[in-house]
Amino acid sequence: MTTVTKHHDTGSTRGSGPMIEAVDIHKRFGHVEVLRGIDLEVAAGEVFCLIGPSGSGKSTFLRCINHLETIDAGNLRVDGDLVGFEQHGNVLHALPEKKIARKRAEIGMVFQRFNLFPHMTALQNVMEAPIRVRKESRTIALERALALLDRVGLADRRDNYPSQLSGGQQQRVAIARALAMQPKLMLFDEPTSALDPELVGDVLQVMRSLAEDGMTMVVVTHEMAFARDVGDALVFVDGGRVVESGHPRDVLTNPQHPRTQSFLSRLG
């Protein structure tokens, strides 16, 4: 876990406690309360899986973690720091855009629909943020980008535009792009749901190897085999609440709550 925490030791609480600490998180869109009190904790180095039916709030919760959505109530901390706010005494100050951006840079995110930048080649996609956000030199950024593309098995595709890549290849470039920022935490929102079945394996393989390297990962997924084999913890979310949690093997093979049971039986 030392690799995960070494490049940020500014805050006193950082690196010691859990990577994510969520207490009673609420989020509403208009009159619809999508998150209705989520409680969970993700330890550093852990692969944490979120499963649940469509519309249960999995994506919304994931997006709260890097402040793409602002929570309405509750206490959400990433690596000891409040998400989106700064505490001075007992007053919370909303963070200005620049600081929010800086925090997001430490959290990688992988989307269901890849969201690669279509006007940039695979290599440019991976190098963009390190150069523009972290102000790295081209040489250093290039070196790491090439290593990352190699790692996801796409070294020979560096000069291809996303439109020239298959879905699975695009998703692997997207993972490399997120890793290029050397995040301490990776969020995956159904990374294989938009892929043809035969392309899923390559992406899961990359995620597996990331897990083996000790990356902290929160994974929203329908790939129960992946959750069972790679996951360290799993929660079943329904109706904006955590219904059941535990070790993936236990929850998946021996679910306790009737809603978990019916959800899993529907998956077959």
Partner: peptide, 8 residues
């Protein structure tokens, strides 16, 4: 969204 997630 992807750009924001990268810290841009």
């Amino acid at each position: 969204e992807a750009a924001a997630a990268l810290g841009m």
